[in-house]
Amino acid sequence: MQLSYSRQVAAGGVLAALTFAGVGALTATPAYAATAEVSAIHGIPGIPVDVYLNGEKTLDNFAPGEVAGPLSLAAGVFDIALTKSGEPVADAFLTVDDAEVLGGTNISMAAHLDASGEPKITSFVNDISKVEAGKSRLIARHIAAAPAMDVRAGGTSVFTNLTNSNEAKADMEAGTIQADAVLAGTETVTIGPAELELSEGTATIVYAFGSADAGTLEVVAQTITGLHSPPAGVPSGDGGQAGTTANTWLYLLAGAGALLLVGGRARVATARRSNR
């Protein structure tokens, strides 16, 4: 008896474990879609390019200041090659082998100049987490052959000492700002000022690209929508005239009614007995 009971328990336990594992396997799979949303940004001044992914031409005659994508790419590693537009892939002037693309991410790959003016590719992972209601995300990326910069909104620094291949970001009140970039720690404007519309519930990514020495500094912008959150609530009344709960007097009335019924029955019963 004892044995068979414990066997049953054991079997039950195994079954439960299997079920659990099965459910786990089923639910774990779709949570991490094995694709990434990939955009490309061309930030090398003066050179239209063709872009090859794993040897296949993906972008043709991609011009400086243009944004391509997003493209859903299966997670994995990719060989990226850039040629001057029209030239064979063998003559690529910029190649990156085994660039890793993680599933479930949103990535911007920027072809640009490093601080010393050499072409390179930087892969930025975009913050696509939700922004609070009423807010907008501003992301500034420095991809120019230029010294460190401060980014200002309405004359006030929002990001300081931003250097090549790096980004800075903040969630701020949605609306229009006057933005410019200055040499870090100075008032010397290098880019802008420009009016920048920060739409609520979006991420606006502004890239500074080009070359300070060549006088080709400019910006390219990318927007990611759908990051909005609903308000925390909708408070729309404090008068109480429209309240729908039974009021206190109704409870009192119901209580009194119940008492009267019980009391009355008791008295009827006593009356009957005494009548007999």
């Binding site: 200041g65 994508g69 493209l71 979006t202 912008a221």
Partner: peptide, 10 residues
């Protein structure tokens, strides 16, 4: 792949 000018949003 869609390609557009990376102009500042309005």
């Amino acid at each position: 792949m869609p390609v557009r000018k990376g102009e500042l949003p309005t």
